[in-house]
């Protein structure tokens, strides 16, 4: 199977997997027999579903131990994938058993088939929301943030005069800006980009500044004794030191950017965008499409986060936290 420090007995491993398979089997069996039913299931059947869920969950908890020490990221992901699968299958079974109307919560299978049917439009929406609004705003906000931090770290006056505001401003709920900015800039994508830029700006300033200034006095003295210029100090000492801090802010910013763009669209949108789609469809009980849009938004959010994390590893591979 996988590398294990202390190999448990084969029989126990088999037992764990048996639990898992049994639990999934129960759930899938119920879904199969209830596929075309339109009545709520009996109490015994509902109990069966919960039993299946518990068995599968217990199975995962035990099986997961076998994956603890693997280094291969794909194999290491197996327990997480199983967890998602059991939650989705249980949700499907429960929603069918209780006959929850699709206008309240759609079944996962319904969401998937809808997702497939509307994927083209959702991709267009995603382009508007992610590329035009979130990404443009993110780049502008992060860029300005880093520049501001550089200036602030260089000039004591700015540090004293601006930084306290930046720290305070990062505790402001930026969503409250959204309606004002949409009214001010207009309903096109630019207004959302501005919202996103402001949202990511303050965390980037505060974090970058910390990275630029929290350098060891020893290294700084060394630089000085070599008569290194200000620019050289920044190039070889302060900036490299700040990178992990900057990346922390950049990673945090990815989620903030997505939320900012989507919330912004709630206050007016030009006929496209994930937020527009979610708002329109939630108003008409099309929750299968709402969930599809959520899936798209989360997949992009996860991909974006991981992209930044990958960049971080490439650029700061030398740093302690990766050694």
């Amino acid at each position: 199977m996988v590398v294990q420090p202390s190999k448990p007995a084969l029989s126990r491993v088999l037992l764990d997997w048996m639990l898992l398979v049994l639990g999934f089997g129960l759930l899938l069996w119920f879904i199969a027999i209830w596929w075309n039913q339109s009545e709520p299931a009996s109490d015994a059947q509902k109990l069966l579903i919960w039993g299946g869920f518990l068995l599968a969950a217990l199975g995962i908890a035990r099986v997961a131990n076998q994956f603890v020490n693997t280094t291969n990221p794909v194999i290491g992901f197996t327990p997480a994938a199983l967890t998602l699968l059991v939650v989705v299958v249980t949700a499907e079974a429960l929603l069918r058993a209780y006959q929850v109307p699709p206008g309240l919560i759609p079944t996962p299978s319904r969401v998937l088939s809808t997702f497939f049917a509307v994927r083209d439009v959702l991709l267009q929406d995603a382009f508007q929301t992610v590329v035009l609004e979130a990404l443009v705003g993110y780049l502008i906000g992060c860029g300005l943030g880093v520049i501001t931090a550089l200036l602030v770290s260089r000039y004591v006056f700015l540090e004293r005069g601006l930084l306290p505001y930046a720290t305070v401003f990062s505790s402001i709920p930026i969503v409250a800006l959204a309606p004002v900015l949409v009214k001010m800039v207009g309903i096109d994508w630019q207004s959302k980009a501005v919202i996103v830029a402001i949202t990511v700006f303050f965390p980037v300033v505060v974090n970058t500044f910390r990275g630029l200034t929290e350098v060891s006095p020893l290294s700084l003295d060394l630089m000085r004794s070599y008569a290194a210029s200000e620019v050289q100090q920044y190039r070889w000492l302060r900036l490299p030191n700040a990178l992990p801090f900057i990346f922390n802010a950049l990673k945090l910013g990815t989620t903030l950017a997505m939320i900012g763009a989507i919330v912004g669209e709630f206050f007016g949108a030009n006929g496209q965008g994930l937020g527009f789609r979610i708002q329109i469809e939630a108003g008409r009980f099309g929750f299968d499409i709402v969930w599809s849009a959520i899936i798209v938004a989360s997949l992009i959010g996860i991909a974006w986060y991981n992209l930044v994390a990958w960049l971080e590893r490439r650029l700061t591979g030398w740093h302690v936290s990766f050694r």
């Binding site: 049917a117 509307v118 083209d120 439009v121 959702l122 267009q124 009214k183 309903i187 206050f267 007016g268 949108a269 030009n270 006929g271 527009f276 789609r277 708002q279 329109i280 469809e281 099309g286 499409i289």
Partner: peptide, 21 residues
């Protein structure tokens, strides 16, 4: 407004109840 139309004939713009926007 139609989630199945990739190249819609009409662009529906959602606006929050203030025509001047």
């Amino acid at each position: 407004l139609d989630p199945r139309a990739t190249n819609p004939d009409v662009t529906a713009v959602s606006y929050p109840f203030d025509p001047s926007l």
